[in-house]
């Protein structure tokens, strides 16, 4: 385990070092991803400016929700979400076999290799939005411990999505447009539970437990009701278990096409 972690750290350093060859592009990419995180708050800000409201949530509270989502998304995209395009790249080039014969756990190696240094811009953006939101709120009446615990669930939810998409890529290879479904999940996760009707809210709390990525962590910090969070937590653990199982199962069906 320690050896894996050390190897992981070496990979991270190597990724940053190699990206420095094109510094200008690296920093513009980071800035682009930072800006990308502002799209949600910008939308909400314009809506509030034009006189629109969101049920039960003020602008700073909604900013906190979107900041939390940006934080989880940023961390996930930086750390492991590259699994999607990395798997596709290996499949297309026929280099997936090389990965399987290495004396390291294949999934761990794939995750290591998926570290995306440019997405650190997303992570910084998430931290910045969350801090701005906290500074705009008069006081936080919730629990910091619950906030971090749900934050972790949010990361696990993203890990499940990444594993499922990676598994789909192993089978179907050309899954570029699968990412659009991730975008749609992000859109739904960017808004509070209160805007969704009963059946949709149940769906987003059980089968696709996306409330753990925005609504619940922000609610935990704000001291809002956390009804349904335990069901969502169980759903996330279940989804992660299923996605891990599917990923390893699809590996058995992998037919090498490398040359």
């Amino acid at each position: 385990m320690i050896q894996n972690l050390l190897l992981h750290w070496q990979f991270v350093k190597l990724k940053y070092a190699s990206r420095m060859a094109y510094r200008f592009d690296f920093f513009t990419c980071m800035f682009a991803f930072f800006l990308f995180q502002l799209s949600g708050p910008l939308f909400v800000g314009v809506i509030f400016y034009a006189g629109g409201l969101f049920p039960g949530w003020s602008f700073p509270q909604l900013l906190l929700l979107q900041g939390t989502l940006a934080l989880i998304r940023g961390f996930s995209f930086m750390s492991f979400f590259g699994l999607l395009w990395n798997t596709q790249d290996h499949m297309r080039r026929g280099t997936f076999d090389l990965l399987l014969i290495r004396p390291v756990n294949s999934l761990w190696f794939l995750v290591m290799n998926s570290f995306d240094e440019e997405d650190s811009g997303q992570f910084i953006g998430g931290v910045a939005i969350t801090l701005v939101a906290v500074s705009l709120l008069p006081e936080l009446q919730g629990s910091l411990l619950a906030f971090f615990a749900i934050l972790l669930l949010g990361v696990l939810f993203f890990l499940s999505l990444a594993l499922l998409c990676s598994a789909a890529t192993i089978i179907f290879i050309e899954t570029q447009r699968l990412y659009e479904f991730i975008d749609i999940i992000m859109i739904f996760a960017s808004y509070p539970k209160t805007i969704y009707s009963g059946s949709i809210a149940i769906l987003f709390n059980t089968l696709i437990p996306l409330f753990v990525a925005g609504n619940y962590p922000a609610s935990a910090l704000l001291g809002f009701s956390l009804d349904g969070v335990l069901i969502a937590a169980v759903s996330v653990i279940g989804l992660l278990t299923v996605s891990m199982f599917i990923w390893h199962k699809t590996l058995r069906y992998y037919t090498s096409a490398g040359g």
Partner: peptide, 18 residues
Amino acid sequence: WFVRVWGILWIYRMLSYF
């Protein structure tokens, strides 16, 4: 003008929606 312009294209992509 630039060897890699991926970052600039991403900035435009994000802003274009607005």
